[in-house]
Design a protein around this nucleic acid. Sequence first.
RNA 1: CGGGGCGUGGCGCAGCUUGGUAGCGCGCUUGCUUUGGGAGCAAGAGGCCGGCGGUUCGAAUCCGCCCGCCCCGACCA
Length: 561
Amino acid sequence: MRASRLFFPTLKEDPAEAEAISHKLMVRAGLVRQLAAGLYIYLPLGLRVMDKICAIIRDEMNAIGAQELSMPVMHPAEIWQTTGRYDEIGDEMFRLKDRGGRDMVLAMTHEEVITWLAAKEIRSYKDLPQVWYQIQTKLRDEARPKSGILRTREFIMKDSYSFDTDEQALEQNYELHIQAYTRIFHRCGIRFYMVESDPGMMGGATAHEFMAPSAAGEDEVALCDCGYAANVELARSISGVPEFPDAGVVEVATPDVRTIDEVSAFLKVDPVLLLKSLLLITDDGPVLVMVRGDQEVQESKLNRVIGASRPANAEEIRELTGAEAGFIGPVGLEIRKIADESLERGVFVTGANRDGFHIRGVVLGTDFEAELADIRRVKANEACPHCQKPLSIEEVIEIGNIFKLGTKYSEPMNATFLDENGKEQKIIMGSYGIGPARIAAAAVEQLSDEKGISWPMNIAPFSIHLALVQPKDSQQTAIAEKLYSELMAAGAEVLFDDRVISPGAKFKDAELLGCPIRVTVGKRSVADGVVEVQLRGTGEEHKFDIGAAAESVMAVLDELV
RNA sequence: CGGGGCGUGGCGCAGCUUGGUAGCGCGCUUGCUUUGGGAGCAAGAGGCCGGCGGUUCGAAUCCGCCCGCCCCGACCA
């Protein structure tokens, strides 16, 4: 491709609205443009990257026997009513009516449609297993689109679905997906972790996420050298046990001392010896939730214990405890109480349910009773639940996820098959997603520098950026043109920068675009009878004789693949 | 949905406090010069100052409502 004919509007300055590095660079490099909140146009270079990523995904999905198909983006509402999600999912689903007044939705995901298809077409155990996938548009009316293409309202997803006769067969397809995903992300050149994840509303018992470390990520994972890796939504840890003071309840006056920090400072007590109490309201009434003063409640964990909840307001707190929020505690309270398991042993300071007072020497089991559960958020340096070594916490971008669905969808959609005994059985399903745009953004986040993007070879829009320094010089031009056609003939994807612009601008654009190999043909190199080759990733430089330039460059390229 | 910020030529911004000719840098057009790290000079084009309403002789500027975008939080099947 000749740069003089390629539409890639580059910018010298960061766009005002961009915060994330990938957002700034993808706009500046002319890969994407924003149409509205969470809606992006992919310009030619951006689309090339996406196409590369999707080609790798197709290759690896096909390699595990998955078959590509394509489902509609618009669905009749009834199919979503069958599984109940039409009502469960709120504003996040785009809804509309057709001209006949029928309710329709825009696809957030395709479990319903694929299961409908399986229910209709699969009859026998002989038809199984099947793995079907598509790379196609999803629409979600996100509450807050953000960070460029990281969280958008319309995006491409590779979604695959497995259909099996039993759990063992599902396990095999699950494992095959893990292998395929691992190869996909490796080939795309990004760093990633596979972590345990919360199956959430997708149902099923087991789920994993593939996470690319990046400060722009919205998730956090807990990691250990031993291989333990989990989303903090469910990550476990062993928290250290401090030295406790003597038990024996003593009420102490703590006027205007409400927060953990204030109580800690006022009573000269380490926050780990404080008991933090939160009053929540659930569908089944109020619940007092307790963690240590140095800990935070992990809502996703708590949610599994008590279901949906909201914080009590000031009046409710007063009514239920007799005190204001800064002075509440479990002692004497006759409501459901949940304590983090780390509170099982210890002697704590807690609110007295009396304004201006706390209680010292409180012991669970003696002074109050509570259900124990793991509801605290994991902190860095706490001990790994497997090997006791310190955990680290990293910010990550979710680039893929895999779920064992079981019969969550086959049951309501009546997707069954006849087994060897002629008995009707429910199909066992799995679902598996990858966000290609997030792979692209993660690559930019992980590999860019102050000059611009540095693409991994396999997903770069072009592998070679051939810079002709002076297009008005006939000798340089002849050398560059010959090299361009030789590299093309050798099968390389070359961006030939033949534009008549100043050399500085040309080099800046090359660094911003981030093609892995830059070949420079200019006065300096021509005088020496060579072309210059510079690797974007390492900065490594080579000089090759003009005569053998194409072969030499191709050798460098082959090494980078 | 709660909190905060922003909205002025294509892009990045100033002007608004204290109402009175709409400005700067980059980009764009034309010409000449320049040509290995975002060139120089000269001449140009390009703006219902987010929208609607109000105050005023007069509104980018003051007031009200609305819309859009970004950030933090909630949410994320």
